[in-house]
Design a protein around this nucleic acid. Structure first.
Lengths: 244, 244
DNA sequence: CGGTTCAGGTTTGTATATAATTTGGAAAGG
DNA sequence: CCTTTCCAAATTATATACAAACCTGAACCG
């Protein structure tokens, strides 16, 4: 039943454990240890380590095995930064390549969600529309490779987001409410055919999501200096400069 | 002596064969076939396929093996586009984080190379400075992950560049001559602390390299429409818009 | 104290066996 | 003739055992 997906499962479990802080940075991951931990043989483990190395989560030294790379607030921010760069470019390029009726449908649904009362269903719909919009933009950006990279990062991001969701905080809910408005601004810019404004709206959306992630995943004191705020500000100043 | 690097070798050989057009798009790559072709056992092959999947060169379907993804002018352009996006962001962020004496040394060497006569040594120096500058910018961009992604793409790009070099054309030499001037403009902007100008210079540099690659790697008729020129123009119009 | 050597443990590669799954085509039915 | 169903061969995915190369760390020697 899960034949042919063991490697994938192992990758997901290791990523989860990494994000939960189960592994220390610099720790060596021995294949036999992992095999026993996850209840599979060493073959899928070895392949999973190659994949994790490609994701930049472990370093694979020849003849020396895998060591886990540092993972903390800084790395979460780096991931969000990459996501911002990739998705903004995709948004800029997707502008004009999405049919008006598709945008109209999205705009309609988003508007309804903004006015609708919060509920379990509302939360699920918000999540669904988030995926829909981001995937639509990636799919239509005209660069399959860019779409591929975005999908690579959405894997990481989704795990982070779910980890945050588990520690439901007031801020998380607040952030989810804002999400629909931020998405709406992106869609409206796309409708208007204004690529730069759409990209800026996307940058703003991802920057705000990054800040929320920082606050929810890590205790305040863990956050060095004010990395996250700096990220947001620099993002906004870029916007301001372009908007003239 | 080869121990611990077979997977890496297989990846390099498959990439080379892909770029040489040995494999058709959509073709299934059976592990046993590849094992025989490259003279290794199936384990390194499978691991190499996982890595190639991460590079986006093959698609890995569960229980169905690997199929090669399309590779042609469009894909080369996509690679260059990604490279442009990543390196421009790195350049913008690296601005102000590179010591003046390092920049001065680079500026000096570039200036000398521009004035120097062409020779085998000159060509080697040009290549060396190219790596030095791009690596320096990636290293100092303040985002390890961004640096990691750039390095991933430099692997692909370097193989493409070497493939072009094998088919030495007049255009290739001409393009290499321009390279030093383009690099110089990047360095000068960094010296001036002008992040946007540095990023724009980098965008221009990579766009021109992309166009040269297109013309050297593929016969004119193979190039659908005028993809490459479009890329260059859109890149320049973006620059123009930002420069106002 | 610094460098060398050596043994143990780990990774990497090879070989083989088994289970699960896909695939392609043949047979059956409409 | 076309569609569906089903089976068998091919292939992938996993497990396991083992040999060889290599790193690490510690004892050892100068």
């Amino acid at each position: 039943m899960n034949h042919g997906k063991k490697r994938h499962n192992v990758v997901a479990e290791v990523v989860g454990d990494l994000f939960k802080g189960e592994f220390q940075a610099g720790q060596r991951l021995r294949v036999e240890f992992l095999a026993q931990r996850y209840g599979v043989s060493v073959t899928p483990i070895r392949e999973a380590l190659v994949e994790l190395s490609g994701l930049g989560l472990v370093e694979l030294k020849p003849n020396c095995g895998a060591v886990v790379r540092p993972f903390g607030p800084r790395q979460v921010l780096d991931i969000c930064h990459l996501r911002q760069v990739l998705e903004c470019e995709a948004t800029r390029n997707a502008c004009g390549r999405i049919a008006p009726f598709e945008l109209a449908a999205l705009e309609d649904e988003l508007q309804k969600l903004i006015d609708a009362p919060r509920s379990r269903q509302w939360s699920a719909d918000t999540k669904r529309l988030d995926s829909t919009l981001h995937e639509l933009i990636a799919e239509r950006c005209g660069n399959e490779r860019l779409a591929h990279e975005i999908s690579r990062y959405s894997v990481l991001y989704r795990i982070l987001r779910d980890a945050r969701h588990r520690r439901r905080t007031a801020r998380a809910n607040y952030s989810q409410m804002e999400e629909n408005s931020e998405h709406l601004r992106v869609v409206q810019a796309l409708v208007a055919g204004d690529a730069e404004r759409a990209s800026d709206a996307m940058a703003d959306h991802i920057a705000k999501a990054a800040v929320a992630l920082q606050h929810d995943l890590f205790a305040k004191k863990e956050i060095e200096a004010d990395l996250a705020e700096t990220f947001l500000e620099s993002s906004q100043s870029t916007l301001a400069a372009v908007a003239k």
